[in-house]
């Protein structure tokens, strides 16, 4: 027991202030629900039962059209979110389509986090010409509209999962670069670093001991916001047709498809997938808010005098 308490003590210390963070909690619930949905309803990798329909989750194979499913039927007890023009069940497509945005958002942010931070560290420590060139490059990317840049990049490659991840990753590298570099520059000046230096500690040691922990909180909050943003970018890309190949369920692509039927009043084709994108992005947005509140409690202002 004692051992367990010691091991988990830091975890509790982090979690304790979270109890009062309502936004964070709501966000976590939404995101967890989505991730569970993505795992349970996503592709199984089993060629004979690609979406686990034998477990009745989802009720129909989202990729298949069934002769017995009515064409373009509104939501009903049998088909909760209606059916589409290819005689597919929209509910099955919506719950099975959640994995792609999550995978794309997480992987791309992980890549930009790694690359951005490393470059930021290098740039911050090296200084000089390298720092100048890197900073300028990053500024150039940063000032350009991220949505346009991501779309242009993915249009350059073939459509698909990996190109989407790469395109989004490039867009967010400058964010992490800037955060890390600023942190490094600030800490370099601080006395304890100089003290450590004078004692003969290597830069790597100083990095690991002092700098990384300080940066982590800021980066956590930024990442959550960026994931929320990346989900929207992914959706926009697949809306424009650069996403997963059909007939894979894909929210953005299904909205593009539903657009053709919009004027004929088939509202369920675009409403539900779009709502899911909104919820997923909102979930990460709320987590980001919660973490920011945790890191920087002053953001919640005292009452007016």
């Amino acid at each position: 027991m004692q051992v367990a308490r010691i091991i988990f003590a830091p975890v509790f210390r982090v979690l304790r202030p979270m109890r009062r963070q309502r936004l964070l909690k709501i966000g976590l619930v939404i995101v967890t629900a989505h991730i569970i949905m993505a795992i349970v309803c996503g592709p199984t990798g089993d060629p004979n039962d690609p979406y686990g329909i034998s477990r009745f989750i989802p009720p129909y194979n989202p990729e298949k059209s069934y002769p017995e499913i009515p064409r373009l039927a509104p939501p009903s007890a049998a088909h909760w979110m209606g059916t589409d023009h290819l005689r597919r069940d929209v509910f099955s497509r919506v719950i099975s389509g959640g994995w792609a945005p999550i995978v794309v958002a997480f992987s791309s942010i992980a890549i930009s986090l790694t690359v951005g931070s490393i470059l930021g560290w290098i740039s911050g420590f090296a200084g000089g010409l390298l720092d100048r060139v890197l900073s300028l490059t990053m500024d150039a990317i940063y000032s350009f509209p991220s949505m346009i840049l991501a779309i242009a990049l993915v249009a350059v490659m073939q459509p698909g999962l990996v190109p989407m991840i790469m395109a989004i990753a490039v867009v967010y590298i400058p964010t992490y670069f800037r955060v890390t570099r600023a942190e490094v520059l600030q800490i370099r000046e601080q006395t304890f670093v100089e003290a450590a230096r004078s004692v003969g500690a290597s830069w790597w040691r100083i990095l690991a001991r002092h700098i990384a922990p300080n940066t982590v909180n800021a980066i956590m909050a930024v990442s959550s916001f960026n994931i929320a943003d990346a989900i929207l970018t992914e959706a926009a890309m697949s809306f424009l047709g650069y996403g997963l190949p059909p007939p894979a369920p894909d929210w953005g692509f299904d909205i593009q498809n539903g657009q053709r039927f919009l004027q004929s009043g088939y509202w369920w084709l675009i409403t539900f997938p779009g709502f899911m994108i909104l919820m997923l992005s909102l979930g990460f947005g709320l987590i980001g808010e919660g973490i920011s509140d945790l890191v920087n409690p002053k953001r919640r202002r005292k009452k007016l005098v």
Binding site: E63, S65, H85, L86, G241, P245, P246, P247, F253, Q256, N257, Q259, R260
Partner: peptide, 11 residues
């Protein structure tokens, strides 16, 4: 934009 659907049905 119907082309993706055509591919899906053919598949």
């Amino acid at each position: 934009t119907t082309e993706a659907d055509v591919a899906a049905v053919l598949k």
